[in-house]
Nucleic acid binder design. Structure first.
Lengths: 132, 132
DNA sequence: CATGTAAATGTTATATTATTACATAGTGTT
DNA sequence: AACACTATGTAATAATATAACATTTACATG
């Protein structure tokens, strides 16, 4: 169960935009889209994004510098994320596979590292693009 | 076995620098370090980096926008990468764990996606930083 | 060895992504 | 009211990455 959190004005505007978007959104594309609502500066966007990532409402797709709404209601607050990314159409979807997340959460290598978080990005061709 | 590839002048200069570095290096830090060797512009660095990534001599740490030499002689040419990243000292090491790479290479989710590549980044505290 | 072609290089300018620094305002305690 | 904490506003700038164009090098093959 995800902890409830009251979003502030800017956080809500930006989350709603990302949530409604069909795919991941980039920071400056978000900025252009919310300027009519009074959010004028990059920093205002980045601050909201940081907070939204922190509380797990959105995730950052690191390889794309883009942000996507969390599609997984039982998400462990961004501590364990996995995505599949189509290299042709750039469609991104969040993978919620219990076996995978258990496997990775329990993964321990020989380095003596204690992991608190992971991010996994798969790349390939989505169904649509594959059949083209 | 990794395919042999003759590096060009710039590629060699930049690879050697990254290979000798203790940790991941950022593009502009690379640039500053090779200016005395005649590589003056960002694009020259990025072109070499792109090629080196493509042939698997280095990897990009996406969450850090930094580059590290491949530490795994049997590396599948950057198609399957995993790293552990210390969030305190920013030390990064490449994970070469056969079970993990097999597990991920064989992973198939319900989306019908065909994966050709993945990148996994684990975050936590390394041994040293944990004991501080 | 000339010629074609792919890869690499050099250079300038510019686009994109992200943060620093500083001032102000709102929100919820106690 | 006083306090702490979070969020906001604004300007400037830093850091990361690519576009566009001209030239050169490497090397296979006719």
């Amino acid at each position: 169960m995800q902890k409830q959190y009251t979003l502030s004005r800017n956080q809500k505007i930006i989350f709603d935009l990302i949530d409604k978007s069909r795919g991941p959104m980039k920071a400056y594309s978000i900025l252009f889209n919310v300027q009519k609502k009074g959010i004028k500066a990059p920093l205002q966007v980045y601050r909201a994004l940081d907070k939204l990532v922190e509380i797990g409402k959105i995730h950052k797709i690191e390889s794309r510098n883009a942000f996507i709404a969390c599609q997984n209601s039982s998400c462990q607050i961004s501590k364990a994320t996995a995505f599949s990314i189509c290299e042709s159409c750039e469609d991104v979807s969040e993978i919620s596979n219990t076996k995978l997340s258990k496997y990775l959460s329990n993964f321990a290598d020989s380095s003596g590292m204690k992991y608190s978080k992971y991010n996994l990005e798969f790349f390939g061709l989505c169904k649509k693009c594959k059949s083209k």
